[in-house]
């Protein structure tokens, strides 16, 4: 049995089934969609077991990794059990503690990491001179500084957008629209290339299995 050919056919048939969604919802798309949901859910359960829970929790707890058991791993084990307590209505409230741990850790991590990369690094990059950089440099730096400052004014919530604030906010949203348009245009080509990839699979991998060579 040629498993490679079977694999190509499976991929091609499921691809065409999903593409049929572009026309309208139909039994082929429904079949492929439901299969995708079920299989991918199963894949991620297995992935979590073998790539996260086993090496980071079970091997550490039992010492299967480096030989010495880490008994502190009982703590995440208990919190994991608390999370699964949701399945039993009488003790479902225990899951709040596991949730609190996830949310608290996430909130603390997000606060510092976001402040570092999305705030301070951006401020540092915006502190640039408007002199000694040539005419184009002056224009570029001025646009960046004015764009950032006016963009921040646009996001002011506690002041109405009137008068000077309104004018600055107007400049801000204009720069934002140009930025979003540029971002949109930048990714269009990348999206088209994804379609090219799938088309190549169908035309140059699948069709040859039926003796059709383009």
């Amino acid at each position: 049995m040629n498993w490679e050919i079977i694999g190509i056919w499976l991929g091609a048939v499921l691809t065409l089934m999903l593409y049929s969604f572009l026309y309208r919802d139909n039994p082929f798309y429904k079949f492929a969609e439901h299969l995708f949901v079920g299989m991918s859910a199963g894949y991620w359960v297995i992935y979590n077991i073998f790539n996260v829970l086993k090496p980071n929790f079970w091997d550490e707890l039992t010492g299967a990794g480096d030989g010495s058991p880490d008994y502190f791993m009982i703590i995440p084990g208990i919190f994991g059990m608390f999370m699964l307590a949701r399945l039993v209505p009488k003790i479902a409230g225990l899951s709040r503690m596991a949730l609190a741990m996830i949310v608290g850790t996430g909130a603390g991590l997000s606060l510092v990491s976001t402040l570092q990369t999305n705030c301070l690094s951006q401020i540092e990059g915006t502190i640039m001179p408007l002199s000694g950089v040539g005419t184009m440099g002056f224009i570029d730096n001025l646009i960046v500084v004015v764009g950032v400052v006016c963009g921040l004014v646009y996001f002011f919530f506690s002041k109405p957008h009137e008068g000077l604030t309104g004018k600055a906010a107007g400049v801000g949203i204009t720069i934002l629209m140009v930025a979003f348009g540029a971002s949109f245009g930048y990714t269009v080509m990348a999206r088209i290339s994804l379609l090219i990839g799938q088309a190549q699979f169908l035309l140059f991998d699948w069709l040859p299995t039926m003796g059709i060579h383009l």
Partner: peptide, 17 residues
């Protein structure tokens, strides 16, 4: 639905239509 990004998109699309 599923942890998979595009599996989720497929499932939600199906629900929407």
């Amino acid at each position: 639905l599923t942890d998979d990004q595009f599996g989720y998109a497929a499932g939600v699309d199906g629900m929407m239509v």
